[in-house]
Design a protein around this nucleic acid. Structure first.
Ligand SMILES: [Mn+2]
Ligand SMILES: [Mn+2]
Ligand SMILES: [Zn+2]
Ligand SMILES: [Zn+2]
Lengths: 145, 145
DNA sequence: ATGTTAATGCAATTATGTTGCAAATATAAC
DNA sequence: GTTATATTTGCAACATAATTGCATTAACAT
């Protein structure tokens, strides 16, 4: 049974990225959480382990390689989650619904909920769909209730 | 037949807002455009007619009163459009699809395209849905093609 | 005309994200 | 193990978006 670090190192090598401390740390943090992780949170947790700019560049590289995907919450804040399916540098397959809790502000990837196809007016060519639901997550609705 | 300015003044009064130059100007600009208008564009057009802070406060007040609604584009930039239906300070009814063109970057309110209901995992309580489609708008797809 | 409240303008501050460049380091070649 | 190289990082500077506090101004009710 291989540990996380080994898995992540393989992931980096597979994508032609060098195995550096900041990159491994970002992967550790993102994979340890049950919801998407905001850039500000990542920045705070990484502290002085990595420069802000490095964090931005790590996230950008990961997104390009299809390792993570970005979700903007209702305030426009960038949140990141590890891609579950076969995403690659060529194409992402993250067209699932995202749920943004009004109470705890977490963003959940609802991998099981696919975005329904749309009928748009003539002339419009839809390339991607991005659906964010807001409300109360399972955790918060049971507490508040 | 009443003109725009009269209409807008009534709208402000109805919402308990004073009829000021910056507010009327924002309404004029937003209503004159066929797509949502970004904050940076508004700021540029208003120029020195109003302070940046005033613009932010005008937009915030309008949003709270249900006069306009905010749409974040794929870069997280705030865009604003006048609410077409019966929105109020109590509730917005803008659950239509938004279309963000990859080419001209305009955001269209597709008022006729409603967001389909969703089946989410147990426990989640959906309050609002926010669907942004990206691709080519009618204008751009006819040109590029 | 006057008083009150709402709205604006200005200055300062915070947060987010980007760019250029020099220094460091991961890794491949020897 | 040493060396060469291309990648990655850190730092400084900059750009833009957004917020806050406070004094001043202006809308409008009386
Ligand atoms: Mn996701
Ligand atoms: Mn709209
Ligand atoms: Zn929650
Ligand atoms: Zn277009």
């Amino acid at each position: 049974m291989e540990n996380n670090t080994e898995r992540f190192e393989k992931l980096l090598v597979k994508n032609g990225l060098k195995r550096t401390a900041p990159r491994l740390q970002v992967l550790e943090i993102l994979s340890s959480r049950d919801s998407a992780t905001s850039q500000p949170y990542l920045e705070q947790v990484m502290g002085k382990d990595a420069d802000r700019v490095t964090l931005y560049r790590v996230l950008q590289a990961f997104e390009e390689k299809g390792i993570i995907h970005k979700v903007l919450d209702q305030q426009g804040t960038a949140n990141y989650a590890i891609c579950s399916e076969g995403c690659s540098a060529h194409e992402h397959h993250d067209e699932h619904v995202h749920f943004n809790c009004d109470n705890c502000h977490k963003i959940y990837c609802l991998d099981s909920v696919k975005i329904p196809a749309l009928k748009v007016p003539a002339g419009f060519k839809v390339e991607h769909l991005n659906l964010i639901a807001t409300g109360l997550c399972a955790n918060c609705s049971s507490k508040v209730n």
